[in-house]
Nucleic acid binder design. Structure first.
Lengths: 147, 147
DNA sequence: AAAGAATCGTCAGTACACGGAGCATTTTCA
DNA sequence: TGAAAATGCTCCGTGTACTGACGATTCTTT
């Protein structure tokens, strides 16, 4: 008894949303490159030669997860990871030519997938959804940063 | 070059939202019981004696993940898992007294946490966010179900 | 210049999350 | 009723995601 309606729990909804997205991604975008992997390639496309910590901040992956994702991409030859000769603590990251090509190819597909994903909503609602999620996530991440 | 703005990607936002939620959950609700574990106890509170497949459908966990989560809860004595004597394929699940007590205690905390989580939004926006996410997730899960 | 603090990364452990293969047990149907 | 199909679960492999402990390196401060 006394079961709660999980449809009023944003955390549960967030998990469902992400699961649905992951599934759609694998069918409409790529089976090899995951969404977090794309985020990494995307960040590197905009800002090459950053270290793992900076990259993680940009795509919101913690240090351990960044290391995992980067290792997978490096193993497949999509990015290079080199010890910074000027600062022996850092790994400097850079997409390879192949990595850049893969990224470029996927950009169009992600846009198409987003259309399908948000198809149940009209144009105004789509903007609202993105904005509302962004505000909640931003606020929560700010609290975290102050720790 | 040609980097995309991930703030326009609902999948990326969904991941950030879920990460933020997980962190808040562990500080405001429980460090031992996770959100998916709570969802399982909650479903069992409403409908005892269901099998893993039915449970997974209710809380949106696939068969493998349900098995994992259920095993953890069983190990801690929060639920019982018994082979159905009438159908040897099923595991019948039921929360223990301790599991029911844990669930009841956490219900109040989850409500409080949701308030904090959605604090950046006003009352109307909160409803809007829940409804919009629900519609997108429902639609995506329906497609999946038709497979 | 040396001690101490801060920073970046790795490693181990835990917990979701998914698909494919395989197993045991029903159910269906010829 | 006996073979075939369907069902529920487990096991395995892969990929996020986080924390704590640790090691190496750099920066600060005296």
């Amino acid at each position: 008894m006394a079961a709660v309606d999980l449809a009023t729990h944003p955390g549960h909804l967030a998990r469902r949303l992400q699961q649905a997205h992951t599934l759609l991604w694998s069918t409409l975008v790529s089976e090899e490159i995951t969404s977090p992997q794309f985020a990494v390639l995307n960040a590197l496309a905009g800002t090459p030669d950053i270290d793992q910590r900076t990259l993680g901040e940009a795509v919101r992956l913690d240090r351990s997860t960044v290391a995992d994702v980067v290792a997978r991409l490096a193993r497949r030859g999509l990015l290079e990871r080199v010890r910074d000769p000027l600062d022996g603590r850092r790994n400097v990251l850079r997409a390879t030519g192949e990595g850049a090509r893969v990224h470029a190819r996927l950009v169009a597909r992600t846009a198409a997938m987003n259309q399908v994903f948000l198809a149940p909503l009209d144009e105004e609602e789509r903007g609202t959804l993105l904005r509302l999620i962004g505000r909640v996530a931003d606020a929560a991440e700010k609290v975290r940063g102050e720790r």
